[in-house]
Write a protein that binds this DNA or RNA. Structure first.
Lengths: 242, 242
DNA sequence: ACCTGAACACCGTTCAAGT
DNA sequence: ACCTGAACACCGTTCAAGT
């Protein structure tokens, strides 16, 4: 009985050829490698094929189209996200669970083209959306209202992420170094040592805080009954209605 | 003294040749024609050149790049938007002026690539952004806070528009007819005559209402002091700071 | 100054053929 | 079943040349 290779193939004639069989797992791994090393999160099928030394069309035998590949990347990311305990207070839970969605997607610079979907649902992140809806219901909102609130939160979150992603890509293609270098261009590193160490996370951190302020305002406003008019019909269309 | 043509040329040898000199105005008009007739708002430089029977590169003599062309289209749109009276009450004014921004951009299906900019400022729409900031200041917020609130409103608005635009483009490229046909596919037109007449505006109307609910919640939440922590530094960077 | 022609450096995807 | 080669139908933009 021969030992199997990690990819499940026999490995007899593979030797140094490294001719690992193509699979979704291999494709996803290569995509992640490009994203992590290439700088900005933009990704093309042809670039990915080059990385794998195959024809672009070989990819389409394991993946329906580019959107499916991106969703696959999101799914693997979602699988590796730990599931923290949520606050008991419904109101805090609504804010915190919404921010969880934000945090997860903020770490997915490849989303680009699909970030403007009506929802971004994959098997392993459904629990977050469920948590948002559940918190809204526990706040006293009817199911339809909860869906409406989720939609508003999603539009807000998606817009923030999209704008940030676009800015970073624009900067990347101008060959500008990331924020760190620009923000602290004329500042001595030793002047603010802690700041300097955190600089490459700075924009993300402030963006996160600003986003949270918006979330808190939204939740506070909805709880206060702002917009007492009923939700317009049709807002709850789609997969999560009911 | 010969009479001048509208485009400023002499018009002597133009005759039936219709060889109108290329200019920003001509380019913008052609772009608007494509958008209004072509269905979805997507627009390419090559397509535009084809419409004008010129080389794609001729465009670049009157316009720096595609982004500038899109901003030009937004500017002409903004020029033709009437400036309604705003409510005296600061809180209502904050909601209404934000919705004005939404309404204007919702009627610009060509924005696509630049909708994820940090701001979408052109000479003729600055008064709207000014009105939002002014209303926020009149609500009692410090200038920095007003900018932060504008940012949140912009992220929310931009996200909503982007998602809607993407959905409509996806439907358009599937050759699906606009919402009207689909929503009312199995319903007798005479059953709901008024609804049927408004059907092609329905999705926009409900989207508008939903967006307004979000705006009202945001404003109510901010006025209630939600997110009492100070705005993180850096949120007021950019053109409108100060 | 204004425009053309040809090219560069890309895209996502289809289709027929190979093994 | 899995992959290749060539092609289709596009992009935005640069560059050198024409008038």
């Amino acid at each position: 009985m021969e030992p199997k290779q990690p990819d499940g193939s026999r490995g007899r004639n593979t030797g140094a050829r490294r001719r690992s069989r193509l699979s979704q797992a291999v494709i996803v791994a290569a995509a992640q490698h490009i994203i992590s090393t290439g700088g900005d999160g933009s990704l093309s099928m042809r670039q990915l094929a080059r990385e794998l030394s195959i024809t672009p069309m070989a990819l389409y035998h394991h993946v329906r189209d580019k959107d499916e590949l991106l969703m696959l990347l999101l799914e693997t990311k979602a699988q590796n996200v730990s599931r923290p305990p949520l606050p008991a207070d419904p109101r805090e839970r609504l804010v915190t669970s919404s921010q969880l969605l934000y945090d997860m997607l903020a770490d997915c610079p490849f989303l680009g083209e699909i970030l403007s979907s009506e929802d971004l649902m994959t098997a392993s992140n459904l629990w977050i959306i469920e948590a948002v809806l559940d918190a809204a219901v526990d706040c006293g909102f009817a199911p339809d209202e909860a869906v409406g609130i989720y939609r508003v939160i999603w539009h807000y979150t998606s817009g923030e992420l999209m704008i940030r992603l676009t800015r970073e890509r624009r900067l990347a293609e101008l060959d500008q170094p990331p924020y760190r270098e620009r923000v602290f261009a004329d500042i001595e590193p030793r002047t603010y040592p802690r700041l300097h160490a955190l600089a490459d996370r700075w924009t993300d951190l402030t963006a996160r805080q600003t986003h949270r302020k918006g979330l808190e305002a939204l939740v506070a406003g909805f709880l206060r009954g702002a917009g007492t008019a009923p939700w317009p019909p049709g807002h709850a269309d789609g997969h999560i209605a009911g």
